[in-house]
Design a protein around this nucleic acid. Sequence first.
DNA 1: TTGTAGGCGTTATCAG
DNA 2: CTGATAACGCCTACAA
Lengths: 340, 340
Amino acid sequence: MRATMKDIALQCGLHKMTVSRALAGHSSVKPATRLKIMEAANRLNYEVNVLAQNFNVGRAGYIGVATSFPYMLESSYLGQSLRGFQVALNGSGMDMALFDTYSDSFNNGEKLAKLYRQRKVDGLLLVALHSTDRFLDTLRDIHIPMVVVGESVANPTGLHSVFCDDERGVRRMCSHLFELGHRRIAFIAGPPDYAGAQRRKEAYVNFCQKHDLNNPSWYIQQGDFSRATARKVALALLRRKPRPTAIIAANDLMAFGAIDTARELKLRVPQDLSVGGFDDLPGAEECEPPLTTVHQPVKLLAERAAGILLKWIETGVTPSSGTIMKVSLKVRQSTGRCPQ
Amino acid sequence: MRATMKDIALQCGLHKMTVSRALAGHSSVKPATRLKIMEAANRLNYEVNVLAQNFNVGRAGYIGVATSFPYMLESSYLGQSLRGFQVALNGSGMDMALFDTYSDSFNNGEKLAKLYRQRKVDGLLLVALHSTDRFLDTLRDIHIPMVVVGESVANPTGLHSVFCDDERGVRRMCSHLFELGHRRIAFIAGPPDYAGAQRRKEAYVNFCQKHDLNNPSWYIQQGDFSRATARKVALALLRRKPRPTAIIAANDLMAFGAIDTARELKLRVPQDLSVGGFDDLPGAEECEPPLTTVHQPVKLLAERAAGILLKWIETGVTPSSGTIMKVSLKVRQSTGRCPQ
DNA sequence: TTGTAGGCGTTATCAG
DNA sequence: CTGATAACGCCTACAA
């Protein structure tokens, strides 16, 4: 069906090798010959067989993006990440393949490793990995080019991860509220098996200690990054005395949940209660009230991660350590002076 | 580096062809030989080179999922679609590659066509395509195995699309409200270049005519499937007299927007205003109040689409027409009896 | 400037 | 039951 270099060669009375050179843009082809070849290629609707090309050089031409489907897929976190990857991959000849690591078969990393060993992908980008995933144990040993995005890893040996400065972000949020007069600051934590969530919580705890806030232990509530759960635990926070005057949520979704609950309890945000988030989702700016949050440059972070991975694949040199990206505090209308 | 069949063959003193047969599970291999081969394969950590395999049979082993990144990526519509694809692709040896059709270079279909001609993908799944996209013009002629998901196409020649029964869905929503006593029913339409949005609007118009509702023309407002825009146009609907007692939005996001506005105007939903949506997003059930909406079996729809595409690729036979999936009305708390 | 030989790893096919 | 050969489409390396 489809024309090959051989077909063009036949039409032109040349050898397929000359065709290969001409199409690859080698300078060692006589202009006249090149022209003839180009015309024939056009005539035949020729298009390189990338499959053969890649097979020849032993690469798949795909980067595997591994994520846990169930709720990551619909997160703008992944959305922005993918956009960042796209930017980095653009022009590299690599494209993105999407894999679900949620299913059980994935959870020991075997399946991902297989993808690589079978040459379905040339490397992996792992988005917001759970730090408990046994991925690491399995994958680390296989020396697969792979970069973890948005999550640092407890034991980073042989793994490169790109993540944001969670600690600094939470610290800045705490300071912001502190300066507004807040002392009764509560915290809704993320799932404990996310290293990033862990870092955020610790930063909050450290801040409280450093400033002798001495808040009751129930000021720290366990969330799971979901809005629904945040609503529930916010209820626990806002019903009991002494009621916090500010809540920091470990991500924006949970901040939204806290605001939902405040509204339900007829508490005004920010007059009666300040709420801070983390992530700066696209929706954070347009919600009611616009959310004060820590901006994470997700797209950039992803772009960086993909860039590192590409270089790794091309050069074969394992990048050394982790990469930390800066965050910034976006002060909007969900935080205000402490009441009284 | 990596072991090949040849390596195994050498270790076993056999021909690589025998190894191929043994590993492929052919019955024509002596059990003892097979065992020897299996052991060697294990010892060498052998894994088939899928790349070579695919090259040999002339297929990429990837299905391209094309979507316009900007907001589709973060939609649960795409999320559910991908999950559906995954189910259908499972076990087929095909995986998903993700492509952004938003950029200009994609909009004439050339790039997608190239993906196919270059054998980067074996077929395409187009999610929620704009019906104005010139994709169709370009792609139709190339006979690429491809299925459009969630959108019917004006001129379906040579294109198979799987979409839901938009008309029936809106009709059922209209009837539901009508039976609750509503007559002043307004409609927030979706972007006119989506065929599905068009169908939904027409279904509404038809219902109004059939029941002689004779509502003013401004009862139809133009939205763009986004929450923000819906808020604005809902304001136009709710500020003017005679105020509608019910609003149907062409998708859930816009229904949420309408509820936002109602809340802002101190209108209670559903006591003062009923609001209906379309899609049944995961969030529709847990929002406040839970949304009455038309359930679209997106995951199933996607699964079906991917199944059709797979068969097309395997058999080479173009499927005939479009496939329409059933919808169902989910009555929740955002609709109620007409006030007075 | 162009041609030839060979190989990438797998499988179909035919021969033994 | 196993082996030999060839082919998939391209490219590297060397020869003319």
